[in-house]
Computed example of a mutant assay.
Amino acid sequence: MADVTVPSPDPQEADCRKIGQVLARVGEKWSILVVMLLVDRPRRFSDLKRGINGISQRMLTLCLRGLERDGLIKRTVVAVMPPHVEYELTLLGRSLAEPVAALGIWASQHIGEIDAARAAFDAKDRGDSTPWQR
């Protein structure tokens, strides 16, 4: 049997994978919405679910677990009768809120341009003729 040497992983490649994983987490639409809902105060699961239109209980659970695993939120069981769970941003999560808000502001400021670009692309895709394409 011949010796097989496995090349050591490129440190930059490993960093890119890790960064990609982080960007995938914070780029999920549900994650962004959860972070923005938690900016002002801790919230219970049901409060988060009511605040995010269209999210299922399962998706919210998965999202919260992922954010907790990444250290962006903290889950606290409140010992009252009946007990309940609250979620809040950690310091790391709070540091994410600012760039997420900036991205939301950017999207709001440019939504008209984006809508126009989409309409032009869709018209071109359908073969429609628009004045600037003639």
Rank of each mutant, 00 (worst) to 15 (best):
M1F: 06
D3C: 04
T5A: 14
V6Y: 13
S8R: 14
D10N: 05
P11Y: 01
Q12L: 02
D15A: 13
C16A: 14
G20K: 04
V22L: 13
L23H: 11
R25Q: 14
W30L: 14
W30E: 15
S31I: 05
I32C: 11
I32Y: 04
I32T: 14
I32W: 01
L33M: 10
V34Y: 05
M36N: 07
V39P: 00
R44C: 03
S46E: 14
L48V: 10
N53W: 08
G54L: 11
G54N: 07
G54A: 07
S56P: 02
R58T: 11
M59V: 11
M59Y: 01
C63R: 00
L64Q: 07
L67K: 05
E68L: 00
R69P: 00
G71S: 01
I73Q: 01
K74T: 07
T76W: 00
T76S: 12
T76G: 00
A79I: 11
P83R: 13
H84I: 05
E86L: 12
E86M: 09
E88Y: 00
L89I: 09
T90F: 05
T90Q: 02
L91T: 14
L91M: 06
R94F: 06
S95P: 03
A97C: 05
A97E: 01
V100K: 08
A101G: 09
L103Y: 12
L103T: 07
G104W: 02
Q109K: 15
I114H: 04
I114D: 01
A116C: 07
A117K: 05
A117N: 02
R118C: 09
A119T: 08
A123S: 13
A123M: 10
K124V: 03
G127F: 07
T130L: 15
